[in-house]
Every structure is written in C-alpha cells, then in structure tokens.
Design a protein around this nucleic acid. Structure first.
Lengths: 127, 127
DNA sequence: GTTGACCTTCACATCAATGTGAAGGTTCGA
DNA sequence: TCGAACCTTCACATTGATGTGAAGGTCAAC
C-alpha cells in the first residue's frame, strides 16, 4: 500500500509516517516513480509506535526497542551490544515505574469518578 | 522550604518548579521578600507531577487530574463539571491503553533480555 | 490533454517541556 | 562591607513531535 492508505489505516498523518521513516522507526520500499510502499505489517508497527510515543517514549528509544519485539522467536543477538543491553535494562525499569505511576493515578481517577457517580444519585454531603 | 531545597529534594530544576507553578500544577506561598516557600507535601506532589509528565501526560491534563488525587477522602464535587468528568473518563481510558501498551512492550523487552542472557552462557544458535 | 488525487522533497511554523543566562534584590557570614 | 549563595523576573534558545504549505512529478479518468 502507499502512504495515503497507511495513513488512513493507522490514523496517522502522512507527515508523521515520513518522520518515523526519517527517524528509522519504519522502512518503506519505493516504486519506480519514487512513491513509498508499505506491507500490511506496517500497519501494526505504526500503531505500536504511536502507542509507545503516546506512552512517553522518545523515537530514539522506540527505535532500539522495536527490534526486540518484531521477531516472534528469532532474535538477532549480533546487534545486541553491551551498551544497548544496559540501555534496555535501564529502560525496562523506567517503563515499570511509568506503569506503576500510571496505574496508581488511573485507579485514583477511577475511584474519584466512582465517588462522584455514587454521590450524584443520592444526595449526600458535599465539600 | 524554599525553591532550592524543593529542587534538591525532588531532583527537579528550579526553572521547572517555576514552570509548574505557572501552569497551575503547584502553588507557593511567598515570604515578605518575594521568595517562594513550599510545605513538605509539595515534595510528593512534584514527584507525582514528574511521574505523570514522564508517562506522557501534558501539564494541562495533570492539572485536571491532580485535584482528584490530593484529597484523601474529602472530594470537592463543586468543581466537577460534566465536561471535566467526561474528560476524565476519556483520559481514564487513554491511560488504560497506555498502561497496556507499556506493559506489553515492557514484557517483550524483558523476554528479549532474558533470551539474550540465556543465550550468552550456553553456546546456542544465533541469528 | 487537462483535471484531480495522489505522491515527492523542502522548509518554515508551532507547541510543550526544558536549558540558559542576564540583571538585579536579599541574606548571611568572613 | 564585601562576597557567596540564595532568590526574583524576563527572555531568548533548544529539542522532539507535529502542522502546514509551496513547488513540482505521476497517473488514472474523463
């Protein structure tokens, strides 16, 4: 598919698809006339990229992380330098912290909303 | 405490503490000479703000969310407009999505790191 | 063969979060 | 009384993720 279709399927502006390519997050073949073409796997990849971006990871890290997730079983150890492993290890911890922080606050928001709902039907004390 | 101490205690540049105040995320009293002063509760609050920022939430939303978390039991329903509740509801869903995405990817990274470790001791096939 | 919907690159603009520094006031200790 | 270490506001710079538009090539359809 070409960039327009990928854009529609992922809800991502073309501009950003080109940006992600420039950042090395996705790759695109080119038709003889220079148009980018993508395979269907790109859809999931872009969605994942957007999720990670939305979760606060910078493209630089996403670029490092993605290769660990693509290959279902086959893992390329060749490009796993000690520095990169350390980076990943560190990032793993930071992601865990992020998850905890998000979970804590989401639960608090949920509790707040529940409280508001419980408090709008019956007439109870209000601050 | 003054801004320098809060900065040290939270590992946050003074510049950002002023920025968070400007964005309405924290408040500061002023001494007669104009210096900002903070109570000890500010430390936790700033840490929480940083966590949420790191998790990808913009200050605009953090400002809306924080009031739901401060008050331990006492909840101010007065300032809970329907729009804000809808916003929170929506943001709750987005946070859940973020958490799922982060968890999925963190687990994948963990699996990758485990695989690399398992593969560095014994000599196994490598791609 | 022209129109319209694609696509290309290039480039400048924006926004939020942050860095950095200037110019100056306060406080405290040598 | 001077200097160091705070603090203030103001303001411009930067970075990453985006928006937007210009100038132009491709191609299918009419």
């Amino acid at each position: 598919m070409r960039i327009g279709e990928l854009s529609e399927r992922t809800g991502t502006p073309r501009r950003l698809l080109r940006y992600y390519e420039e950042q090395g997050l996705i790759v695109a073949d080119r038709t003889p006339n220079g148009y980018r073409t993508y395979d269907t796997a790109s859809v999931g990849r872009v969605v994942q990229i957007r999720g990670l971006l939305d979760a606060g990871l910078p493209t630089r890290l996403i670029k490092q992380i993605l290769p660990c997730l693509d290959k279902p079983q086959v893992i390329h150890f060749s490009d796993a330098t000690p520095e990169m492993l350390a980076t990943l290890e560190c990032e793993l911890d930071r992601m865990t912290s992020r998850i905890q922080c998000l979970t804590r606050n989401r639960d608090a928001i949920g509790a707040y909303l529940d409280a508001v709902r419980d408090n709008h039907r019956p007439q109870a004390a209000v601050g």
